[in-house]
Design a protein around this nucleic acid. Structure first.
Lengths: 184, 184
DNA sequence: GTCTATATACAGATAGAC
DNA sequence: GTCTATCTGTATATAGAC
């Protein structure tokens, strides 16, 4: 049962994404996975250490999903459609945010290492989007690619926000539907 | 000096938008405006009461700004450009969110009355955007108008998120630039 | 309307037994 | 590796004097 560490990470990720990083405590994790607060401190001495482990695991996983999309689809539009679905699934029933959105929102509670990891994640995702856009081979300058990628990421993160506020995935769908139509 | 109430609201709004609703306490407000915690409770007995007062004042003010835009511009594209600037200004230097974004993110900490006010605000803003879009007189079905308005609002809220994560208004500008170009 | 003082709950974190 | 017990700080909130 050395998987306590994994259980803590799973629980911490879900709570971060549904309630925000300030919205849960070690006591919440402890009661959920059936151990004591002190035991969590054994695995992650501080909440900052937990945050860093969470962001590292999460961003590795999402970027791996992007590579998997590349392996499955050659066409840029199909890749982008799959990417929209990635963010829709992450939004769940409208109760969940991308971990990086959740962390991006609590800059006062996170140290510089975590914030740098969030920015790195977003930069990598924008680069991945740019590559998918190039596959569309619409003639665009590099500057346009940058800005288009930034707007797509903002749209998807904003769509997750909408879903959360409306407490339904319908909020996500309404926000991305026009974009998806362009990819059809 | 009965303007203590206003000072509390001003301070509470700023702290909500820069740190999130869970990110400040009555002690923060008290030390900033130079009174004691107990005095704040005299004006707003609970933090929930403060939240409700904040969202009411804020949404009235923003919707009034939308009406002012209508009075200044007849053209739909010019109205939308002014609206983008409204959200850019609200984003400040990237440290600030629309109060409704900040509140939409902390559903566990807010009661149903506040959450309903946030949803009402967003619905009103989407309606205003739809009206501006109609002025463009591009032939669109009503469904399309709904979805386009939802995507514009999500883009602007996502752009504020980007600015916050990147800790610079550049994040906002990058996200909205392609959209602004369509309005030029 | 503002204050001091206090109640109660919970946060993150540590010491040390087992 | 997990536990009990405890420390310290801070949160929202209330009672009652001035």
């Amino acid at each position: 049962m050395t998987d306590t560490k994994t259980a803590i990470l799973d629980c911490g990720e879900r709570l971060s994404r549904t309630r925000g990083f300030d919205g849960f405590s070690y006591a919440d994790i402890a009661s959920e996975i059936g151990i004591r607060k002190a035991s969590i401190h054994h695995h992650f001495p501080t909440k900052a250490a937990l945050a860093l482990a969470l962001i590292k695991r999460y961003s590795d996983r999402v970027l791996a999903s992007c590579e998997a999309i590349d392996d499955t689809y050659r066409d840029g539009k199909l890749r982008l459609k799959a990417f929209v679905n990635l963010y829709r699934d992450a939004s769940s029933k409208g109760d969940c945010l991308c971990l990086c959105v959740a962390f991006g929102l609590a800059p006062e509670s996170l140290n510089e290492a975590v914030k740098a990891s969030v920015r790195l994640y977003r930069a990598n995702v924008r680069l991945w989007i740019e590559t998918a856009l190039e596959q569309e081979s619409v003639e665009q300058s590099n500057d346009d690619l940058d800005m288009t990628a930034a707007s797509i990421l903002a749209l998807l993160e904003g769509a997750q926000l909408s879903a959360r506020t409306e407490q339904s995935v319908d909020g996500f769908n309404a926000a991305v539907q026009m974009f998806e139509r362009r990819l059809a």
